[in-house]
Write a protein that binds this DNA or RNA. Structure first.
Lengths: 126, 126
DNA sequence: AACTACATACGAAATATTTCGTACAAATAG
DNA sequence: CTATTTGTACGAAATATTTCGTATGTAGTT
């Protein structure tokens, strides 16, 4: 149906685009820590590949290109979670949830938020 | 610290080993749908690679080898979930949980199980 | 002994992902 | 005008993942 799953590096780039909105290659490169972490043309190449794959769109702005994520953050995350439920948890979302909470790092506030969300879900099911 | 993250195919194989316990190459191959899906030597090669990487151990049994997963299912899943929380959900487990339940496919029973788990967790926090 | 059945080992091809060098184009500074 | 700066395009190398062909070894059969 929708966009192919991003690779690890593509996901990093998407995070920048989600966070900052449309970016030039330079913007993305800097946001990702500059030459310390990636060559400039590496990022450029990725954005070009992602353009081909339909993961991002672009638009000329003066002499440079601004790249924009096509898929939104929520959908993409949703897809990735659905996939992990499928490949790792044999289709059981609750197993994933339990595993997610299993590291015991969630604060009381977080647990509360989840409970609230459960309430809303169950109301919806009536 | 622990085992390197398994690749997609390695994970498939691990699932078989977790499910069935120690297996011969043939067992794994068959469990994964036989020649329909993978050549016999493909599975063999993977098990050998996984042996090198320390993901599985093996033991001679008569003239064949029995391969056994070293990392257990729970730890491995836990690691993968922790990683996704980190790379995709910026460290927030509750965001992942909400996303996991967001596809609305969870049954009432599943939701109930989660609620119960939350109860246990919170008791533990007192 | 030769044949077959069932195993393992090894090397290498096919594909996907990641990285970057080099060439080229346009605008601007000296 | 030449040099520099700032940008894109392209090709190809490096690495990781996936797949399988071929060689070889060991029992058991005929």
């Amino acid at each position: 149906m929708s966009t192919a799953k991003p690779t690890k590096k593509e996901l990093e780039i998407l995070h920048v685009l989600w966070e900052k909105g449309p970016c030039s290659v330079k913007n993305v490169h800097e946001q990702m820590g500059g030459d310390q972490n990636n060559g400039y043309t590496t990022i450029l190449k990725f954005l070009q590949i992602m353009l081909e794959k339909g993961i991002v769109s672009r638009q000329k702005s003066g002499k440079l290109h601004l790249y924009k994520a096509i898929a939104n953050k929520e959908n993409t995350k949703q897809q990735m979670v659905d996939k992990i439920i499928d490949t790792v948890f044999e289709g059981s979302a609750s197993q994933l949830v339990i595993s997610a909470l299993g590291n015991n790092k969630s604060s009381k506030e977080e647990l509360k938020a989840i409970r609230k969300y459960l309430d809303e879900l169950e109301e919806g099911k009536q």
